[in-house]
């Protein structure tokens, strides 16, 4: 998938901007999502590692 399918028929510049927009949205979602996961399970994982269980 090259991103040109996102806005078929649009100009190459618009398609390229759409690709950048998708990647930016993915990055924000991953930053927020993994941040929430880290807050939720991070301390428990560290405790488990520290106690060897």
């Amino acid at each position: 998938m090259t991103g040109t399918e996102l806005l078929a028929g649009a100009s190459p510049s618009v398609q390229a901007l759409a690709v950048i927009g998708v990647v930016l949205l993915e990055a924000i979602a991953l930053y927020v999502g993994y941040g929430a996961v880290e807050e939720a399970v991070g301390p428990a994982v560290l405790d488990r590692l520290a106690n060897g269980r």
Binding site: M1, T2, G3, P12, Q15, A16, V19, I20
Partner: peptide
Amino acid sequence: GRAGVIDL
């Protein structure tokens, strides 16, 4: 991306 060569 303008060249359509990025693999999403």
